[in-house]
Design a protein around this nucleic acid. Structure first.
Lengths: 268, 268
DNA sequence: GGTGATCTATTGTCCGACAACGGGTCAACG
DNA sequence: CGTTGACCCGTTGTCGGACAATAGATCACC
């Protein structure tokens, strides 16, 4: 069968029809087994989100291992965002998404030395798409949120950092307006890596006016349910983006730097 | 007020400019601090990928904590894919991507009940984009790989499962040909969730011929460096996709099912 | 009703111990 | 010479028990 281990580099979808050879049989350590069992229970729906898990000692006796082992298993799931706890309290099942998944994505991207150009290319695919999709799903709530964001942007002409945040928020809101969770996940790395790297551009070029204009055009197009125009303006906006980067003499083909501001953001 | 726990819904980019109120001061537990320190060291480039870390006991003395604590910290990073070990050997830094990141993404997507439609919409953004970008970067290697894939597809008209794998492989190869790592990461969920769910369509409608045709058109357009045509055909191909799903009476608006075949794939 | 004292359950951290396993060396064996 | 086995050592996986710190509940007190 395929599925032979020990390969990480080639495409995981290549069928390496291995010849007659034995796969290295694996006897996973206990903490992994425990972790998998719990994960399966959660994904299988046995433990609904929000529910509390048994205490560590309880789990230890149930699985027949020590508490240390259980704790290691818990840490695995905790990082994935499947489990979590507020403060020093009991363990709870939670549904992971924004923080957990996207954080690991952006870490992976940094390690792979993803370039500015790479992220920009994706933005050229996703941002117009988001604007287009939002036309069909925009509701009163997001209309208000977007309007507020435009106001915020207008008020931030003198505050670079605020302007950057507003810019990020706008694109995020448009994506959220689509109600497409997969799109949100795919876009998160842009929020975490791409846009923050735009900061020097804002500081040097002060493109606030131009940004606001683009956002307004996009917003208006979405609101009057005009997908093509919305997408077109979004694309134009992204092209402005690249122009700004080039004019600010940032290294467009170099790896995007790690913002890495928030150290331990595990508050929730 | 900001940062109150137990909420996962609002945008993390909203500026909760907190009024005069104190944030719950946090003293993160030791295993978290250790984990963060190691993570920072890796991301900061102090420890290059592939390098070995000190042994657990060594780390324990360095950080001034017990081995148990170090182990818990390690588990956190291990899940994220930043660290890993082959078998029972020493700890090594590795660069995470395909498995680790994308696994957590797809888990998150399942938990959030991402629908077929959601994924399809993203495909409409990314697949044409990939085809377009590949035009500029296609080299001899990927030309050969794609040609081989077409041959494989042609030979798989009678083998549904093989056809499915070939189909996935084709799109994956096109994306890889772009050399855009970010694109690969963004697309992984499609490989893991979207395309596999296409299996019933293949079994019922036997669209092999039509798939092959589309792939050929796309490939040819890429090879003769014709981005617009390549993107156009890719888009057409994705539309076929949806039509197939609808004709096979799959629930287009329902949450995409979990494949979840491989349990403990932590071999490498 | 709010405040404080008390108690218990649970987590975070420590310590020490041992078996299992990987990897090396080296001699014996064919 | 290559293979096998015996042996040793470093490291990981797992164990058991221990204790301080904290969260949550209970109850008396003003």
């Amino acid at each position: 069968m395929p599925r032979n281990p020990l390969l990480e580099l080639p495409s995981p979808h290549m069928t390496s029809r291995a010849p007659a050879q034995f796969a290295t049989l694996k006897r996973p350590p206990a903490y992994l087994q425990v972790s998998e069992r719990i994960r399966a229970a959660i994904l299988g729906g046995q433990i609904p989100a929000g529910e509390l898990l048994p205490t560590e000692t309880e789990l230890a006796t149930q699985f027949g291992v020590t508490r240390s082992t259980v704790r290691e298993a818990i840490r695995l799931l905790e990082q994935g965002g499947l489990l979590g706890r507020a403060g020093r309290k009991r363990l709870a099942v939670r549904l992971p998404s924004l923080e957990s998944a996207s954080r690991s994505i952006s870490v992976a991207m940094q390690m792979h030395r993803v370039t500015f150009k790479d992220l920009w290319e994706i933005s050229m695919g996703l941002e117009p798409l988001a604007a287009r999709l939002a036309c069909a799903t925009l509701d009163a709530q997001y209309t208000a949120l977007l309007a507020a964001n435009l106001e915020r942007t207008r008020a931030a002409f003198d505050d670079d950092l605020e302007m950057l945040e507003a810019e990020i928020e706008f694109h995020d809101l448009v994506a959220r307006a689509t109600r497409n969770h997969a799109l949100l996940l795919a876009r998160e790395p842009l929020n975490l890596l791409f846009y923050p790297a735009y900061r020097p551009v804002i500081e040097r070029l002060k493109p606030g006016k131009r940004i606001l204009e683009s956002h307004q055009k996009i917003f208006e197009a979405i609101r009057r349910n005009d997908p093509d125009t919305a997408a077109e303006w979004a694309e134009k906006h992204m092209r402005d983006f690249r122009r700004g980067i080039l004019m600010a003499k940032l290294d467009f083909d170099g790896p995007v730097a790690a913002t890495y501001s928030e150290g331990t953001s595990r508050t929730a």
